[in-house]
């Protein structure tokens, strides 16, 4: 995905440094995902209007919550009569992973507290994964460039879905849901550089898979974060 010159630029940029070239590099890397996310944004807008959640509520939610899985869960549960409590619980559990994810990129998000807050809102699975350089290091320019583009496409997609309706059809018929596990696998492959990372990946996968049938969606991913304790001791 990255060209040779991008790789050089990445190596020369400090993790917490924000450069125009780096932000553009992050945005470029996120283009295929932004397309898929935009399509799901449209279907979120369609679902929200057709289920009675409301178009304006959907647009505000995409601008603030900016977490696809949480938003789909909340709206579907409300639509099926599950109640406010169940909808909120499901959505918050699905967003729970952003606690540890936010912590992992905290060192590179400097600036005044309000700026740190704003930057942190561009953290989602995809931008975080693209910004990871391995070894616990993250690239701030990539995080913000990728997160910014994906935010725009999620928001614009929701708006289109609310206003334009179901002109695209089901994103799953286009296979777009299969793009995300493939992306995460590709990024994982670049991360597993030593034994500890390998053990963490295996543990994370096993924990998540083993828990899926027994707990609510979202919890398997939060529990998988516990695999980070393989870093407790020095090698």
């Amino acid at each position: 995905m990255s060209t040779g010159s991008d790789a050089t630029a990445t190596a020369e940029r400090a993790p917490g440094e924000l450069t125009r070239a780096g932000v553009l590099q992050g945005a470029r890397a996120a283009v295929p995902l932004a397309i898929a996310v935009g399509a799901f944004g449209i279907s979120f807008g369609v679902l929200a209007t057709s289920s009675g959640f409301g178009g304006l509520a959907a647009i505000v939610m995409s601008a603030t919550t900016f977490s696809g899985a949480s938003q789909f869960a909340a709206v579907s549960i409300l639509a099926s009569g599950g109640g406010v409590g169940a909808a909120v619980l499901a959505a918050v559990l699905l967003a729970g992973r952003y606690g540890p994810i936010g912590l992992s990129v905290a060192p590179i998000l400097h600036g005044r507290a309000v700026l740190r807050f704003l930057q942190s809102q561009l953290i989602i699975d995809e931008s975080w994964a693209l910004s990871s350089r391995g070894g616990g290091e993250f690239d701030r320019s990539i995080l913000l460039g990728a997160g910014g583009l994906i935010f725009v496409s999620w928001f614009a997609g929701t708006l289109l879905g609310v206003v334009g309706g179901d002109f695209l059809g089901d994103p799953e018929s286009l296979g777009l849901d299969a793009a995300f596990p493939a992306l995460f696998l590709g990024l994982l492959a670049g991360q597993v550089k030593d034994r500890r990372a390998f053990v963490a990946a295996i543990l994370g996968a096993v924990i998540a898979l083993a828990l899926i049938p027994f707990v609510r969606p979202g919890i398997p991913i939060i529990a998988a974060a516990l695999a980070c304790f393989v870093g407790w001791r020095r090698e």
Binding site: A129, S132, G136, F180, Q191, F198, G204, A224, V230
Partner: peptide, 13 residues
């Protein structure tokens, strides 16, 4: 944190 990235990526996969 270094171990968190592969663990969460694998869980997301």
């Amino acid at each position: 944190v270094a171990a968190l990235a592969p663990a969460l990526l694998a869980a997301l996969v």
